[in-house]
Design a protein around this nucleic acid. Structure first.
Lengths: 138, 138
DNA sequence: TCCTACATTAGACAATGTCTAAGTCAAGAT
DNA sequence: ATCTTGACTTAGACATTGTCTAATGTAGGA
């Protein structure tokens, strides 16, 4: 993720202070912030950053394939910087905690041809749901 | 689905006109309406039905396991009356059409124990994405 | 240093969903 | 058949999340 800014510059992006702080907030794996959470954390580094810029920047990062958009609950979308390694998500039904997980096998292959209805199937998203150790204990 | 009202009565539900029309709108498989779509169709049968009642009723049907909540796009949730037969969804990336599909094998089993992080994993939701024949053609 | 096209901003607006207080009614009790 | 009561419905305010616009600012090349 630290070379994200380099890649973006290579794509002709202007490196503004706002884009830098958004990238900084997303830095590190296992982070799944909502847009408003990204905005709140970015605003600690750059108080005058606006919501619109955060939304714009996140949308651009998704378009470029640098960040994954995840919606596990029908509420706010979450942004996952771990976009360069295929993975799925495991969500706690109680507290909402999200973990990146890696199922075995080919998840696309288990959809038979006669269940594809002529679609050109390109991708698959899997959400596992359960109760995390923390919530089990209490 | 036609015996849904019977099951609900058995659970102590009051059978109001509003609940009848919501059940009628959802009747039939392969239907994936948003709450507002359900409201619009219900209002054709019972013009004075309110949005709040539709939201309440859908929420209750979901709690009772009679209807599945599906959110394939991070926008409005959709309501799937085909809740008594396990299935997953195939979504057209262009027009948003949704089909019910049935992958083979045990989708839970492909998540190894060392990828469960102590969670008690209870369910799995899969969304396949691709382009439908209609959108491929045009 | 200057230009200018691209980026940012504040805030209005849109879409979806939730909540409240007041009125209505289904269904059991009489 | 009527009464009673607690569950149900309603209108509309409110909340959350996301999008858009017009004015202003600025990164980076000339």
């Amino acid at each position: 993720m630290s070379d994200l800014l380099e890649r973006l510059r290579g794509r002709g992006w202007r490196l503004t202070a706002q884009r830098r702080v958004v990238a900084e907030v997303l830095d590190g794996d296992h982070v799944h912030y909502t847009a408003d959470e990204v905005h709140a954390r970015a605003a600690e580094l750059l108080p005058e950053i606006s919501r619109a810029t955060v939304y714009n920047t996140l949308g651009e990062l998704v378009s470029l394939g640098e960040v994954m958009e995840v919606s596990t609950d029908g509420r706010a979308k979450r942004y996952d910087p771990n976009a360069h390694h295929a993975h799925q998500h495991l969500v706690c039904s109680q507290c909402g905690t999200i973990r990146d997980v890696h199922p075995t096998g080919d998840l696309l292959a288990v959809l038979p041809a006669d269940e594809r209805f002529g679609f050109q199937v390109a991708a698959v998203e899997v959400t596992y749901r359960g109760v995390c150790p923390n919530c089990s204990a209490s």
